[in-house]
Write a protein that binds this DNA or RNA. Structure first.
Lengths: 193, 193
DNA sequence: GTCGACCGTTGATTTTTGTCGACGGTTTTT
DNA sequence: AAAAACCGTCGACAAAAATCAACGGTCGAC
Protein backbone atom coordinates (compact mmCIF):
# COMPACT_ATOMS: atom_id res chain seq x y z
CA UNK A 1 0.00 0.00 0.00
CA UNK A 2 3.05 2.31 0.03
CA UNK A 3 3.25 2.37 -3.74
CA UNK A 4 1.37 5.66 -4.21
CA UNK A 5 3.71 7.40 -1.78
CA UNK A 6 6.85 6.02 -3.42
CA UNK A 7 5.56 7.05 -6.84
CA UNK A 8 4.71 10.45 -5.47
CA UNK A 9 8.21 10.99 -4.14
CA UNK A 10 9.81 9.91 -7.42
CA UNK A 11 7.48 12.10 -9.42
CA UNK A 12 8.12 15.28 -7.49
CA UNK A 13 11.81 14.78 -6.75
CA UNK A 14 12.46 13.77 -10.37
CA UNK A 15 14.81 11.07 -9.16
CA UNK A 16 14.70 7.35 -8.45
CA UNK A 17 14.68 5.59 -5.14
CA UNK A 18 16.97 2.67 -4.43
CA UNK A 19 15.51 -0.53 -3.03
CA UNK A 20 17.04 0.34 0.34
CA UNK A 21 15.47 3.76 0.30
CA UNK A 22 12.10 2.31 -0.57
CA UNK A 23 12.39 -0.05 2.35
CA UNK A 24 13.29 2.73 4.77
CA UNK A 25 10.31 4.76 3.64
CA UNK A 26 7.97 1.78 3.87
CA UNK A 27 9.16 1.13 7.39
CA UNK A 28 8.92 4.74 8.55
CA UNK A 29 5.45 5.55 7.17
CA UNK A 30 2.95 3.48 9.11
CA UNK A 31 -0.49 2.62 7.70
CA UNK A 32 -3.49 3.91 9.60
CA UNK A 33 -7.13 3.29 8.83
CA UNK A 34 -9.69 5.82 9.95
CA UNK A 35 -13.44 5.63 9.88
CA UNK A 36 -15.57 8.52 8.79
CA UNK A 37 -15.75 11.18 11.54
CA UNK A 38 -12.58 10.05 13.31
CA UNK A 39 -9.95 12.68 14.05
CA UNK A 40 -6.36 12.68 12.90
CA UNK A 41 -5.92 15.81 14.99
CA UNK A 42 -8.08 17.43 17.63
CA UNK A 43 -7.98 21.03 18.79
CA UNK A 44 -5.67 21.47 21.77
CA UNK A 45 -3.43 18.55 20.85
CA UNK A 46 -0.12 18.58 19.05
CA UNK A 47 -0.31 17.57 15.42
CA UNK A 48 1.83 14.53 16.06
CA UNK A 49 1.61 13.04 12.59
CA UNK A 50 1.81 14.10 9.01
CA UNK A 51 -0.48 11.85 7.01
CA UNK A 52 -0.30 11.00 3.32
CA UNK A 53 -3.74 10.03 2.09
CA UNK A 54 -3.83 6.76 0.14
CA UNK A 55 -7.60 6.49 -0.05
CA UNK A 56 -10.35 8.68 1.32
CA UNK A 57 -10.93 12.33 2.18
CA UNK A 58 -10.40 14.64 5.14
CA UNK A 59 -11.00 18.22 6.12
CA UNK A 60 -9.16 20.64 8.39
CA UNK A 61 -11.17 23.24 10.27
CA UNK A 62 -11.27 25.34 13.40
CA UNK A 63 -14.02 26.60 15.66
CA UNK A 64 -14.14 30.35 16.23
CA UNK A 65 -15.15 32.22 19.39
CA UNK A 66 -18.79 32.13 18.31
CA UNK A 67 -18.67 28.37 17.91
CA UNK A 68 -18.75 28.48 14.12
CA UNK A 69 -16.75 26.04 12.03
CA UNK A 70 -14.35 27.34 9.38
CA UNK A 71 -12.88 24.89 6.87
CA UNK A 72 -9.33 25.83 5.92
CA UNK A 73 -8.32 22.77 3.88
CA UNK A 74 -9.86 19.87 2.03
CA UNK A 75 -7.76 16.78 1.36
CA UNK A 76 -8.20 13.75 -0.89
CA UNK A 77 -5.87 11.05 -2.24
CA UNK A 78 -2.22 12.11 -2.61
CA UNK A 79 -2.59 15.08 -0.27
CA UNK A 80 -0.66 15.68 2.94
CA UNK A 81 -2.72 16.28 6.06
CA UNK A 82 -1.18 17.99 9.08
CA UNK A 83 -1.17 21.29 10.90
CA UNK A 84 2.20 22.45 9.80
CA UNK A 85 2.75 24.96 12.57
CA UNK A 86 1.94 22.45 15.29
CA UNK A 87 3.80 19.60 13.60
CA UNK A 88 7.03 21.58 13.26
CA UNK A 89 6.97 23.42 16.56
CA UNK A 90 5.26 20.68 18.57
CA UNK A 91 2.84 23.27 19.95
CA UNK A 92 -0.89 22.66 20.54
CA UNK A 93 -3.03 23.16 17.48
CA UNK A 94 -6.24 25.15 17.14
CA UNK A 95 -7.31 22.92 14.25
CA UNK A 96 -9.21 19.70 13.84
CA UNK A 97 -8.50 17.25 11.04
CA UNK A 98 -11.36 14.85 10.54
CA UNK A 99 -12.01 11.98 8.13
CA UNK A 100 -14.88 12.84 5.76
CA UNK A 101 -14.94 9.28 4.50
CA UNK A 102 -13.36 6.05 5.67
CA UNK A 103 -9.74 6.85 4.98
CA UNK A 104 -6.40 5.08 4.63
CA UNK A 105 -3.30 7.05 5.53
CA UNK A 106 0.42 6.65 5.87
CA UNK A 107 1.57 8.53 8.94
CA UNK A 108 4.94 9.66 10.27
CA UNK A 109 6.09 11.72 13.24
CA UNK A 110 8.27 14.77 13.05
CA UNK A 111 11.26 12.99 14.61
CA UNK A 112 10.95 10.07 12.22
CA UNK A 113 10.64 12.39 9.26
CA UNK A 114 13.74 14.35 10.26
CA UNK A 115 15.70 11.11 10.52
CA UNK A 116 14.46 9.91 7.16
CA UNK A 117 15.34 13.20 5.50
CA UNK A 118 18.93 12.78 6.60
CA UNK A 119 19.13 9.52 4.69
CA UNK A 120 17.04 10.15 1.59
CA UNK A 121 17.88 13.18 -0.55
CA UNK A 122 14.94 12.52 -2.88
CA UNK A 123 12.59 13.02 0.06
CA UNK A 124 14.14 16.38 0.88
CA UNK A 125 13.87 17.42 -2.74
CA UNK A 126 10.24 16.28 -2.89
CA UNK A 127 9.40 18.35 0.16
CA UNK A 128 11.10 21.37 -1.35
CA UNK A 129 9.09 21.04 -4.53
CA UNK A 130 5.90 20.57 -2.54
CA UNK A 131 6.66 23.67 -0.51
CA UNK A 132 7.02 25.62 -3.70
CA UNK A 133 3.80 24.33 -5.21
CA UNK A 134 2.02 24.87 -1.94
CA UNK A 135 3.24 28.46 -1.69
CA UNK A 136 2.05 29.14 -5.22
CA UNK A 137 -1.36 27.58 -4.56
CA UNK A 138 -1.81 29.58 -1.37
CA UNK A 139 -0.84 32.77 -3.11
CA UNK A 140 -3.53 32.14 -5.71
CA UNK A 141 -6.08 31.44 -3.02
CA UNK A 142 -5.20 34.70 -1.29
CA UNK A 143 -5.43 36.59 -4.58
CA UNK A 144 -8.88 35.12 -5.19
CA UNK A 145 -10.00 35.95 -1.67
CA UNK A 146 -8.99 39.58 -1.80
CA UNK A 147 -10.17 40.37 -5.31
CA UNK A 148 -12.96 38.01 -6.44
CA UNK A 149 -16.65 37.82 -5.62
CA UNK A 150 -18.16 34.74 -4.01
CA UNK A 151 -19.42 33.58 -7.38
CA UNK A 152 -16.04 33.98 -9.04
CA UNK A 153 -14.35 32.10 -6.22
CA UNK A 154 -16.77 29.22 -6.57
CA UNK A 155 -16.32 29.02 -10.33
CA UNK A 156 -12.56 29.06 -9.92
CA UNK A 157 -12.80 26.34 -7.30
CA UNK A 158 -14.87 24.11 -9.60
CA UNK A 159 -12.44 24.72 -12.44
CA UNK A 160 -9.29 24.03 -10.42
CA UNK A 161 -10.58 21.27 -8.17
CA UNK A 162 -13.36 19.53 -10.10
CA UNK A 163 -13.16 16.34 -8.04
CA UNK A 164 -13.68 18.03 -4.69
CA UNK A 165 -17.26 19.13 -5.31
CA UNK A 166 -18.37 15.49 -5.44
CA UNK A 167 -16.51 14.43 -2.31
CA UNK A 168 -17.51 17.05 0.25
CA UNK A 169 -20.91 18.35 1.36
CA UNK A 170 -21.79 21.71 -0.05
CA UNK A 171 -21.80 23.58 3.24
CA UNK A 172 -18.19 22.57 3.84
CA UNK A 173 -17.17 23.83 0.43
CA UNK A 174 -18.97 27.09 1.19
CA UNK A 175 -17.02 27.39 4.42
CA UNK A 176 -13.77 26.64 2.59
CA UNK A 177 -14.56 29.46 0.15
CA UNK A 178 -15.46 31.81 2.99
CA UNK A 179 -19.13 32.21 2.12
CA UNK A 180 -22.41 31.27 3.81
CA UNK A 181 -23.97 27.98 2.76
CA UNK A 182 -27.14 29.77 1.66
CA UNK A 183 -25.12 32.06 -0.59
CA UNK A 184 -23.47 29.09 -2.28
CA UNK A 185 -26.85 27.45 -2.77
CA UNK A 186 -28.12 30.56 -4.53
CA UNK A 187 -25.01 30.85 -6.69
CA UNK A 188 -25.50 27.30 -7.92
CA UNK A 189 -29.16 27.84 -8.65
CA UNK A 190 -28.80 30.82 -10.85
CA UNK A 191 -28.02 29.99 -14.48
CA UNK A 192 -24.36 30.92 -14.90
CA UNK A 193 -24.38 32.85 -18.15
CA UNK B 1 26.26 45.93 3.04
CA UNK B 2 25.81 42.14 3.00
CA UNK B 3 25.90 41.93 6.78
CA UNK B 4 22.11 41.86 7.29
CA UNK B 5 21.77 38.96 4.85
CA UNK B 6 24.58 36.97 6.47
CA UNK B 7 23.06 37.53 9.88
CA UNK B 8 19.69 36.54 8.55
CA UNK B 9 21.01 33.25 7.20
CA UNK B 10 22.77 32.42 10.47
CA UNK B 11 19.71 33.30 12.48
CA UNK B 12 17.29 31.13 10.55
CA UNK B 13 19.60 28.23 9.80
CA UNK B 14 20.84 28.17 13.39
CA UNK B 15 24.36 27.53 12.17
CA UNK B 16 27.50 29.52 11.44
CA UNK B 17 28.97 30.46 8.11
CA UNK B 18 32.63 29.97 7.36
CA UNK B 19 34.64 32.85 5.95
CA UNK B 20 34.65 31.09 2.60
CA UNK B 21 30.89 30.71 2.65
CA UNK B 22 30.42 34.35 3.53
CA UNK B 23 32.59 35.30 0.60
CA UNK B 24 30.64 33.13 -1.79
CA UNK B 25 27.40 34.65 -0.64
CA UNK B 26 28.75 38.18 -0.86
CA UNK B 27 29.90 37.49 -4.39
CA UNK B 28 26.64 35.87 -5.53
CA UNK B 29 24.20 38.44 -4.14
CA UNK B 30 24.66 41.66 -6.06
CA UNK B 31 23.67 45.03 -4.62
CA UNK B 32 21.02 46.96 -6.49
CA UNK B 33 19.70 50.41 -5.70
CA UNK B 34 16.22 51.32 -6.80
CA UNK B 35 14.46 54.63 -6.71
CA UNK B 36 10.90 54.98 -5.58
CA UNK B 37 8.50 53.78 -8.32
CA UNK B 38 11.08 51.67 -10.09
CA UNK B 39 10.16 48.07 -10.87
CA UNK B 40 11.99 44.97 -9.71
CA UNK B 41 9.50 43.00 -11.79
CA UNK B 42 7.01 44.05 -14.43
CA UNK B 43 3.95 42.15 -15.58
CA UNK B 44 4.72 39.95 -18.58
CA UNK B 45 8.37 39.52 -17.69
CA UNK B 46 10.06 36.64 -15.91
CA UNK B 47 10.85 37.30 -12.27
CA UNK B 48 14.54 37.01 -12.95
CA UNK B 49 15.74 37.94 -9.48
CA UNK B 50 14.96 37.22 -5.90
CA UNK B 51 15.74 40.32 -3.89
CA UNK B 52 16.59 40.58 -0.21
CA UNK B 53 15.69 44.03 1.04
CA UNK B 54 18.46 45.76 2.97
CA UNK B 55 16.77 49.13 3.19
CA UNK B 56 13.46 50.38 1.87
CA UNK B 57 10.02 49.03 1.04
CA UNK B 58 8.28 47.41 -1.92
CA UNK B 59 4.90 46.09 -2.90
CA UNK B 60 3.74 43.30 -5.16
CA UNK B 61 0.46 43.70 -7.02
CA UNK B 62 -1.42 42.76 -10.14
CA UNK B 63 -3.91 44.51 -12.38
CA UNK B 64 -7.20 42.69 -12.93
CA UNK B 65 -9.34 42.64 -16.09
CA UNK B 66 -11.11 45.80 -14.98
CA UNK B 67 -7.80 47.61 -14.59
CA UNK B 68 -7.92 47.62 -10.80
CA UNK B 69 -4.78 47.12 -8.73
CA UNK B 70 -4.67 44.36 -6.10
CA UNK B 71 -1.80 44.34 -3.60
CA UNK B 72 -0.79 40.79 -2.67
CA UNK B 73 2.37 41.47 -0.66
CA UNK B 74 4.09 44.26 1.20
CA UNK B 75 7.82 44.05 1.84
CA UNK B 76 10.23 45.95 4.09
CA UNK B 77 13.73 45.33 5.40
CA UNK B 78 14.70 41.66 5.74
CA UNK B 79 11.95 40.47 3.41
CA UNK B 80 12.39 38.51 0.19
CA UNK B 81 10.80 40.00 -2.90
CA UNK B 82 10.09 37.81 -5.93
CA UNK B 83 7.24 36.12 -7.74
CA UNK B 84 7.96 32.63 -6.65
CA UNK B 85 6.06 30.91 -9.42
CA UNK B 86 7.78 32.88 -12.13
CA UNK B 87 11.20 32.74 -10.49
CA UNK B 88 11.00 29.01 -10.05
CA UNK B 89 9.50 28.04 -13.41
CA UNK B 90 11.00 30.91 -15.42
CA UNK B 91 7.54 31.69 -16.80
CA UNK B 92 6.15 35.23 -17.38
CA UNK B 93 4.64 36.80 -14.30
CA UNK B 94 1.31 38.54 -13.92
CA UNK B 95 2.69 40.59 -11.03
CA UNK B 96 4.50 43.86 -10.61
CA UNK B 97 6.98 44.47 -7.82
CA UNK B 98 7.59 48.16 -7.32
CA UNK B 99 9.72 50.17 -4.92
CA UNK B 100 7.56 52.19 -2.53
CA UNK B 101 10.60 54.06 -1.28
CA UNK B 102 14.18 54.36 -2.48
CA UNK B 103 15.33 50.81 -1.82
CA UNK B 104 18.57 48.85 -1.51
CA UNK B 105 18.45 45.21 -2.43
CA UNK B 106 20.69 42.21 -2.79
CA UNK B 107 19.63 40.27 -5.86
CA UNK B 108 20.38 36.81 -7.20
CA UNK B 109 19.17 34.78 -10.18
CA UNK B 110 17.64 31.34 -9.98
CA UNK B 111 20.69 29.68 -11.57
CA UNK B 112 23.06 31.43 -9.19
CA UNK B 113 20.92 30.49 -6.22
CA UNK B 114 20.81 26.84 -7.24
CA UNK B 115 24.60 26.82 -7.52
CA UNK B 116 25.04 28.47 -4.16
CA UNK B 117 22.65 26.04 -2.49
CA UNK B 118 24.83 23.16 -3.64
CA UNK B 119 27.76 24.65 -1.74
CA UNK B 120 26.16 26.11 1.38
CA UNK B 121 24.02 23.84 3.55
CA UNK B 122 23.09 26.70 5.88
CA UNK B 123 21.45 28.47 2.97
CA UNK B 124 19.34 25.43 2.16
CA UNK B 125 18.33 25.14 5.78
CA UNK B 126 17.48 28.83 5.97
CA UNK B 127 15.23 28.51 2.92
CA UNK B 128 13.49 25.51 4.45
CA UNK B 129 12.79 27.41 7.64
CA UNK B 130 11.56 30.40 5.65
CA UNK B 131 9.25 28.17 3.62
CA UNK B 132 7.80 26.89 6.86
CA UNK B 133 7.26 30.30 8.35
CA UNK B 134 5.86 31.56 5.11
CA UNK B 135 3.40 28.67 4.86
CA UNK B 136 2.22 29.33 8.40
CA UNK B 137 1.82 33.05 7.78
CA UNK B 138 -0.15 32.43 4.59
CA UNK B 139 -2.39 29.95 6.35
CA UNK B 140 -3.21 32.58 8.95
CA UNK B 141 -3.92 35.12 6.28
CA UNK B 142 -6.30 32.71 4.55
CA UNK B 143 -8.02 31.94 7.86
CA UNK B 144 -8.52 35.65 8.47
CA UNK B 145 -9.82 36.20 4.96
CA UNK B 146 -12.45 33.48 5.10
CA UNK B 147 -13.70 34.10 8.61
CA UNK B 148 -13.08 37.68 9.73
CA UNK B 149 -14.81 40.96 8.92
CA UNK B 150 -12.96 43.84 7.31
CA UNK B 151 -12.58 45.50 10.68
CA UNK B 152 -11.18 42.37 12.34
CA UNK B 153 -8.72 41.88 9.52
CA UNK B 154 -7.47 45.44 9.87
CA UNK B 155 -7.04 45.13 13.62
CA UNK B 156 -5.16 41.88 13.19
CA UNK B 157 -2.96 43.50 10.57
CA UNK B 158 -2.09 46.38 12.87
CA UNK B 159 -1.35 43.98 15.70
CA UNK B 160 0.83 41.62 13.66
CA UNK B 161 2.54 44.15 11.40
CA UNK B 162 2.63 47.41 13.35
CA UNK B 163 5.49 48.86 11.27
CA UNK B 164 3.74 48.46 7.95
CA UNK B 165 0.98 50.97 8.59
CA UNK B 166 3.55 53.78 8.72
CA UNK B 167 5.40 52.73 5.60
CA UNK B 168 2.62 52.29 3.04
CA UNK B 169 -0.24 54.57 1.97
CA UNK B 170 -3.57 53.60 3.40
CA UNK B 171 -5.20 52.67 0.10
CA UNK B 172 -2.49 50.08 -0.52
CA UNK B 173 -3.05 48.54 2.88
CA UNK B 174 -6.78 48.45 2.13
CA UNK B 175 -6.07 46.62 -1.11
CA UNK B 176 -3.75 44.20 0.69
CA UNK B 177 -6.57 43.43 3.13
CA UNK B 178 -9.07 43.03 0.32
CA UNK B 179 -11.26 46.01 1.22
CA UNK B 180 -12.13 49.32 -0.45
CA UNK B 181 -10.07 52.33 0.61
CA UNK B 182 -13.22 54.15 1.70
CA UNK B 183 -14.18 51.24 3.95
CA UNK B 184 -10.79 51.30 5.64
CA UNK B 185 -11.09 55.04 6.11
CA UNK B 186 -14.42 54.51 7.87
CA UNK B 187 -13.10 51.70 10.03
CA UNK B 188 -10.30 53.95 11.26
CA UNK B 189 -12.65 56.85 11.92
CA UNK B 190 -14.97 54.99 14.18
CA UNK B 191 -13.84 54.82 17.84
CA UNK B 192 -12.71 51.23 18.33
CA UNK B 193 -14.02 50.36 21.81
C1' DG C 1 -39.92 1.10 10.55
C1' DT C 2 -39.48 5.39 13.15
C1' DC C 3 -36.89 9.03 15.00
C1' DG C 4 -33.53 12.29 14.70
C1' DA C 5 -29.43 14.26 12.51
C1' DC C 6 -27.85 16.17 8.56
C1' DC C 7 -28.32 18.68 4.18
C1' DG C 8 -29.72 21.65 0.73
C1' DT C 9 -33.12 25.12 -0.49
C1' DT C 10 -35.94 29.24 -0.31
C1' DG C 11 -37.95 33.78 1.13
C1' DA C 12 -37.65 37.90 3.87
C1' DT C 13 -34.82 41.00 6.01
C1' DT C 14 -30.59 43.17 7.81
C1' DT C 15 -25.81 44.09 7.73
C1' DT C 16 -21.71 44.86 5.53
C1' DT C 17 -19.14 46.53 2.02
C1' DG C 18 -18.48 48.62 -2.58
C1' DT C 19 -19.24 52.38 -5.89
C1' DC C 20 -19.59 57.03 -7.40
C1' DG C 21 -18.80 61.78 -7.13
C1' DA C 22 -16.85 65.44 -4.82
C1' DC C 23 -13.68 68.10 -1.84
C1' DG C 24 -9.47 69.89 0.49
C1' DG C 25 -4.85 69.12 1.74
C1' DT C 26 -0.26 67.28 0.43
C1' DT C 27 3.40 66.22 -2.26
C1' DT C 28 5.67 65.97 -6.68
C1' DT C 29 6.66 67.66 -11.17
C1' DT C 30 7.59 70.99 -14.33
C1' DA D 1 5.38 79.30 -8.41
C1' DA D 2 1.92 76.99 -10.79
C1' DA D 3 0.05 72.73 -12.31
C1' DA D 4 -0.68 68.06 -11.76
C1' DA D 5 -0.94 63.89 -9.32
C1' DC D 6 -1.78 61.69 -5.13
C1' DC D 7 -4.21 60.81 -0.83
C1' DG D 8 -7.56 60.46 2.65
C1' DT D 9 -12.29 61.61 3.70
C1' DC D 10 -17.23 62.04 3.29
C1' DG D 11 -22.20 61.47 1.88
C1' DA D 12 -25.57 59.13 -0.82
C1' DC D 13 -26.65 55.20 -2.82
C1' DA D 14 -26.25 50.34 -4.74
C1' DA D 15 -24.77 45.79 -4.53
C1' DA D 16 -23.25 41.73 -2.24
C1' DA D 17 -23.57 38.70 1.22
C1' DA D 18 -25.04 37.30 5.94
C1' DT D 19 -28.61 36.15 8.97
C1' DC D 20 -32.92 34.18 10.48
C1' DA D 21 -36.59 31.06 10.09
C1' DA D 22 -38.83 27.48 7.97
C1' DC D 23 -39.40 23.28 5.08
C1' DG D 24 -38.82 18.72 2.78
C1' DG D 25 -35.74 15.05 1.63
C1' DT D 26 -32.32 11.58 2.71
C1' DC D 27 -29.83 8.59 5.51
C1' DG D 28 -28.23 6.22 9.44
C1' DA D 29 -29.05 4.66 14.32
C1' DC D 30 -31.81 2.40 17.24
Amino acid sequence: MHRPLLDYICQYSKSFLTIEEEEMITKAFRPKKMRKRQYLLQEGNVSKYTGFIIKGAMRQYYIDEKGLEHVVYLFIENYWATDRESFYNLTPSIYNIEASENTELLIITRAELVELMKKIPALVEMIRVMDDRNAIAMQKRISANISNTAEERYEEFIKNYPHFAQRFPQHQIASFLGIAKETLSRIKRKPSR
